[in-house]
Design a protein around this nucleic acid. Sequence first.
DNA 1: GCATGATCATGC
DNA 2: GCATGATCATGC
Length: 447
Amino acid sequence: MAEAVPGLESRINKRNKGDLGMIVERYYFEHDPPNINEPDFNEAGLELKVTGVITKRDGKVRAKERLVLTMINYETIVDETWETSKFLKKCRLMLILFYEYEKSKDNLSRRFVLAPMLHRLAKPANLLEEDVLVRREAFEIEIPIEDLNTIRQDWEKIQAKVRQGLAHELSEGDTTFLGACRKGSGGSSEPLRHQPFSNQGAKARAFSLKPAYVNRLIYGICKDSARLADESLAQVSSPSSSRTFEESVLEAFSGFLGLTLGDIAKSLGYHRPSKGYKGFHREVAKRILLAGAIGISALDLEDIEMKLIRVNKHWTPNEAMSFPNFKYLEIVNERWEDSKFFEKLERRFLFVVFRTDEQDVERLAKVFYWNMPYRDRQEARRVWLRTKKCVAKDARFLPTSRESYVAHVRPKAKNSRDRELTPQGLKLVKKCFWLNRDYIASILKDA
DNA sequence: GCATGATCATGC
DNA sequence: GCATGATCATGC
């Protein structure tokens, strides 16, 4: 960044240094940001977006995070149509710049990578727009019509929820490409927003392009440059809507429903690598997907979380469900909204259920999507916040499954010597959040 | 039988 | 070499 604008370092004050988008607009394009509800380059109907990418160890480029677009106004969205929406007015044409995110660098040291991208959700509103296109030599990506339709459907789904007075229940897992992500500091002191059809206050949220979609865009730029392209992105970039993708996942499983675990593995030419292997069922599920030409990375790109559940003949799960470890020293400074647990719980889950039947034979019994209801996410948040508090006070005593119907904390480590420092200076075994077994059972009962 | 602690094999 | 997703083991 500093190289692109000579003398930038001295012109910028510390307070503004945190906003790379603003720096690019003001000092590179020499343009003053206008009213917040209009596109940045209003005369051209062009919105500027700056977003981070990460180059993984294998050289492949991925989105660092969702791309936040514009706040959702609960009061006005209920009277809009897609065509007349504030969202489309602002984001109809976006110039997206990608920078390489490296943790240690500050904004002025960021390097821009890939080609600048013009992202068009709808036809031009005026001719000036084309000027910008030519002047900046940006790469206009061709967006499949199915993708545009999906974004529109996502928008309509979000609108529908607000119209039903359910703005407080919005979740990223509701939608496919266009998400309703939380916005603002997220602390509990944050005032809730009013929504028109309910007295229930709702968290401030913004429209965002979900990581899966940003990755598709990146693939669109990179696919001709072999070094950068992640081929697994191609799978979801093929011109089929994501709705169809979700259906094709279920379809891949459908032919195996009711079959025994052994028969499925055999028919896929897969053998349990070792007796004690705990990932066998998951590997079988992955191979079922593969047989349907779906890679596990494709699920990942769609932010779908596949989880294996094994149950007995009464449909009672054998185990609770684990999530990524947290670090004692980190959780005390973390916000719920930034936690891994939160991020996972907002995703759409794909539950793959193996049931041991009356004859004691294990069969693929059920495959279904599930989103965690709002009430339960709130409860998970409560457990997380309590854990944070407990870790700060005395990390030896953390929430057990008796304290919540949804989640608890339990060890997850290589063994009991696999420990980590706590704020009290103690070394305790590594732990993570788990969804209670009873809670998983209740999901299965409802499904 | 359940809650909790302990541990496993694999893939990246 | 460790994070990951999941299961095993033990004690009540």
